[in-house]
């Protein structure tokens, strides 16, 4: 009972003006990563995309809101535990997993052929007119081209592959389309973003737009960007996909959540990705 009372009190505090709450600037720091092929520097702070011009000037990667130790883990690929999952994804990529021995590598050659994809997905597939997450692309090959059962949206195999494919676009600029065929999905995602859910009656925007920089239960609230996904979460000692993070955040409002891969969360992932247009793809990043 006590817990519930304090959580509701938090909800009220967040709903109203946050006077007297701790606030801290996103940490000023530069994300230069030691990789096997030398250093790469990420764009972690950028002018907000035009569609956000009424609500913010600057977008920040979630990296700026983590503590020094967590930030440092992402600055050297060796220290980034997420790379283990990239390696695992690579093993799966090369393995003859298909019903007739097909492998991803057999058709796509090296995973580098996927460079650039993470930066523009979710996107509407030209042929089918459907909104596609990276997971949907992977599963279309797994089922239609390899004769296998679809991989679970949040399964280990799926997340290892997400890690491997995202990694190929590291350092490229997020630039998902919001217009044309994407427009109706984007609008739907936007609506979800500003809708209050759950017993706490909180919208994504209440936390990640109105209150980024504030502390919530000793966690430094970021803008809720997904340019760093999938992320290695220290809390779970494992990989977390953007779909899982969205589910977690809806659940934290004490709402019945949407399912991974549902129309709602696909639209939401597109919209959230578009709020980060201009930042570098960082996946696999490290979070607490």
């Amino acid at each position: 009972m006590k817990l519930r009372t304090s959580a509701l009190a938090t909800a009220t505090a967040l709903g109203l003006a946050l006077t007297g709450m701790a606030w801290a600037e996103p940490v000023e720091d530069t994300l230069t990563i030691e990789t096997d092929d030398g250093q790469i520097t990420m764009v972690t702070t950028a002018p907000a995309p035009a569609h956000l011009s009424d609500v913010m000037d600057t977008i920040y990667s979630g990296w700026h809101f983590r503590d020094a130790e967590t930030r440092a883990m992402q600055m050297d690929d060796f220290d980034n535990p997420g790379m283990v999952f990239v390696d695992r994804g690579l093993d799966a990529w090369n393995a003859a997993l298909g019903k007739n021995g097909e492998s991803c590598a057999g058709c796509h050659q090296s995973p580098e052929s996927m460079a650039g994809l993470r930066a523009v997905v979710p996107r509407v597939d030209e042929k089918t007119g459907k909104l596609m997450l990276m997971e949907d692309y992977i599963n279309s090959c797994v089922t239609e081209r390899m004769g296998l059962e679809a991989w679970g949206m949040t399964s280990k195999s799926m997340k290892d592959m997400l890690a491997l494919i995202s990694f190929q676009s590291r350092g490229m600029t997020v630039n998902v389309a919001t217009d044309g065929a994407a427009a109706p999905y984007w609008e739907k995602g936007r609506e979800i973003y500003y809708t209050r859910y759950g017993q706490l009656e909180l919208a994504c925007a209440n936390c990640h737009e109105d209150n980024y920089g504030n502390y919530i239960r000793s966690d430094h609230l970021s803008q809720g960007q997904i340019n760093g996904f999938p992320v290695y979460r220290l809390k779970n000692a494992g990989i977390l996909s953007a779909q899982q993070r969205l589910i977690g955040c809806v659940r934290d409002t004490r709402a019945e959540t949407f399912k991974a891969g549902s129309d709602e969360l696909k639209a939401l992932e597109l919209y959230v990705a578009s709020r980060g247009n201009g930042l570098s793809v960082e996946g696999v990043s490290v979070r607490n």
Binding site: F78, M83, V84, D87, R88, D91, K156
Partner: peptide, 9 residues
């Protein structure tokens, strides 16, 4: 399962 060693030298 999924055991994978990595080293940096």
């Amino acid at each position: 399962k999924d055991v994978k060693p990595r080293v940096k030298v």
